[in-house]
Design a protein around this nucleic acid. Structure first.
Lengths: 198, 198
DNA sequence: CAAGGCGTTCAATTTGAATTGAACACAAGG
DNA sequence: CCTTGTGTTCAATTCAAATTGAACGCCTTG
């Protein structure tokens, strides 16, 4: 069968360039691309998903792993992942657990097998929502407490009667943030959003 | 005036630990914190905003810069930013332009001054939306073209009559992705979302 | 036209996070 | 009880992205 993968031009000592075919899961070299076979599609999606999650700030592995499982008919074991994707066992283990938390992947048992197997869930909406909740929660809570802290501090200052112009400006800005935060929080918890993501 | 900032315990050679006060914009050391003055609130928000944007995958500087401008009464110059935040001129320049693109900050001219000054826009909803469009656009487009590419490839294969079970599975999975993508795209462009973010 | 102030660029560096892999814990089977 | 086959952990490493800063170009002013 013809080779498949990214085609990269490699300079040689003799001055004659030659083509080199790289597996799809390698960071893509902006080359032409060959698609012969069903497994090629899988590998292309694996690469794309890896780039996607990497661009979003989760690593490359987590996307690749999900795509691999998603495009596999049979449930996949950690060994399958490390072999197919060329990643370490440790990374596979941790990423799979992350995906499980997001509900992107679910554990299945196969009789007679000692390994853990995983298969993909198709409900992208739910997955995205869980991942977002995760991210937003982590990034929001500390800012949240700072906001209330500032508000109480400003309130006491006002009680003391000392409210020069700078203080007023500050209070106004903090208030604007509070308004946005409340609106965002309201929207986030509204049934509307819940419906949209389902 | 009493010193303000994070309080960090530093071990000394004599065995006697002493307290050290760090400016708020330094990466926070999990210490106690002192708030005496209006500028302290600004610095705390600067630190929080920096952590926020960093967690979201944009650097620390961009958040700090926006917070600094947002909590400044007067328009701020690049020099103000590099001095107050302890960042480089290059970074300040680039970050400010990014913020301008998002509509988070706008250029103002001050007569008799040669420097560029910036002040903050308060419309957080719009800012978030622009930043999101930016992110989603960048991460989505390549995946998008892969999707259509795969669909056409699968279609030709089907024409050739060769559709074993594996192919059907593959086609089904690709179809599921397409459905999600279309739904997401529709929602994203729906007037509903536009209203929510305003 | 020379000099100085200002913003921009980009290659080099730094930094923070992702990834690795060796050591570990646990279970099952012999 | 030892061995073998698992998944997990976490300190060390690697890697990509953020940040720096020196060099540059442009404008203004004297």
């Amino acid at each position: 069968m013809a080779p498949t993968g990214w085609i990269r031009l490699v300079a040689t000592r003799t001055g004659r360039d030659r083509d080199e075919v790289c597996p799809f899961h390698t960071p893509h070299p902006d080359g032409v691309f060959l698609m012969n076979d069903a497994t090629d599609i899988r590998e292309r999606f694996v690469a794309a998903a890896g780039e996607f999650t990497q661009a979003l700030g989760y690593g490359r592995n987590i996307g690749q792993i999900f795509a691999h499982i998603y495009f596999s008919r049979d449930p996949q074991s950690l060994d399958n992942l490390t072999e197919s994707l060329g990643i370490s066992k440790g990374s596979a283990s941790m990423s799979v657990r992350q995906l499980e938390q997001w509900g992107a992947v679910k554990h299945v048992w196969i009789k007679g097998e000692r390994k853990d197997f995983y298969e993909a869930c198709e409900d992208f909406g739910r997955i995205m929502r869980k991942a977002l909740i995760d991210l937003v929660g982590r990034t929001t809570e500390s800012a949240d407490s700072l906001l209330t802290e500032s508000e109480t501090w400003l309130a006491t200052k006002k009680k003391n009667g000392r409210t020069p112009a700078d203080m007023d400006f500050l209070a106004d800005r903090v208030k604007k943030i509070r308004e946005f935060r409340n609106r965002a929080h309201y929207l986030w918890n509204s049934p509307l959003i819940r419906v949209l993501f389902k």
